[in-house]
């Protein structure tokens, strides 16, 4: 299963090579052209020369850590890459560097902590990666400064049609994009698997500049806070309720005509959908929509619980429905063109 393979691949922001080659292999038989750029975005093109030109984007990178120093004992000092909640780090297995050297994130055992210490979250400065080595020399043989560190966790199906694993943000979006690229449309489609979204939407603007599309669709995973202790007003999205359409976030406000396109398509095809009920955080659409003369964009997300942690949860119906909705929207563009009348 592609989604499982993608989730289990390691690809912290700036180090997306594994994910990129996986996707390249998956899509090479479907693409008319497959290229990369200097920052590491992967471009998959189909229907060259057709109109209009639409860009589809999903980011390959995941949040993680980076090795910044060694202790004499061989423990590794790390810093965060992307928006990690440092409270979830402790006691998780990880892999370090290109050789995927296994390690664990350790901290002082609770027995050794004073009562007041126990109440405080463990800051990244108080956490170390332990490779099981005895000295700095031994550690340096296995890993080096600047090595990326990713969570190590495998994908499992749990409960009713749910998937538990790491990095569904945004490997689930990557899987959606890959599936969409396998279908045929009477459009020029460029699927871009972008890099470095988690460290500030770095790849997407560059990609949009290169592709120069007339419109863009971004596939994401977004917070689902439909959990105990959260009031319904703060749920943002709920799993199992269908793909989430973004109206606004910190980086982007969706043009009404793009929202209408998504809603009409979903309703016509009987696909459940929800609006993302939070106006903060950002996605690649923030950069894409601001490139060149402005590119009308739309963000469709798979609701995801415990996002940015080693164990995130999505619903497979949401995943399938996101693929259906994406294909439906492209079909609608194929038939009715882009919905931005009256503009030059």
């Amino acid at each position: 299963m592609l989604l499982k393979k993608l989730s289990e691949a390691y690809g912290v922001s700036g180090d997306e090579g594994n994910v990129r080659s996986l996707l390249r292999t998956e899509l090479q038989d479907y693409a008319e052209e497959l290229t990369t750029d200097s920052i590491g975005n992967l471009y998959v093109k189909k229907g060259l020369g057709k109109k209009p030109r639409v860009m589809l984007a999903a980011h390959m990178d995941e949040v993680g850590l980076m090795v910044v120093g060694f202790e004499k004992s061989g423990l590794l000092r790390v810093t965060a890459v992307g928006g990690l909640d440092h409270r979830v780090l402790v006691s998780k297995p990880v892999v370090v560097g290109n050789n995927h050297v296994p390690g664990v994130i350790g901290a002082k055992a609770i027995h050794l902590q004073k009562p007041q210490e126990r109440k405080k979250p463990l800051e990244i400065d108080n956490l170390y990666i332990d490779l099981g080595v005895q000295s700095q020399e031994e550690a340096e043989k296995l890993v080096k400064i600047g090595d990326y560190v990713a969570f190590r966790s495998s994908v499992n199906e749990i409960g009713e049609n749910c998937l538990l694993g790491k990095a569904f943000d945004d490997r689930a979006g990557c899987a959606v994009l890959a599936e969409v690229m396998k279908a045929d449309f009477d459009l020029e489609l460029t699927g871009v698997f972008t890099v470095q979204e988690e460290v500030g939407l770095r790849g997407a603007g560059v990609a949009a500049f290169n592709v120069h599309p007339e419109a863009a669709l971004v596939f994401e995973a977004t917070s689902a806070a439909d959990v105990a202790g959260t009031k319904e007003a703060g749920h943002v999205t709920q799993i199992g309720q269908g793909p989430a359409i973004t109206i606004m976030d910190s980086s982007f406000i969706t043009p009404q005509y793009m929202i209408d396109l998504a809603v009409k398509t979903a309703e016509k095809l009987g696909i459940p959908y929800q609006f993302r009920r939070l106006t903060t955080a950002g996605t690649d659409a923030g950069q894409i929509s601001q490139t060149h003369e402005g590119i009308p964009s739309l963000v469709i997300s798979i609701p995801c619980r415990y996002i940015h942690s080693p164990a995130t949860l999505i619903n497979l119906d949401d995943y399938q429905n996101t693929i259906r909705l994406a294909k439906g929207i492209l079909k609608a563009i194929e038939e009715g063109g882009l919905p931005c009348e009256g503009t030059a």
Binding site: P255, S289, E293, G294, I295, T343
Partner: peptide
């Protein structure tokens, strides 16, 4: 006078 896709 004209409008663009961003509404400008």
């Amino acid at each position: 006078v004209f409008l663009d896709k961003m509404g400008n």
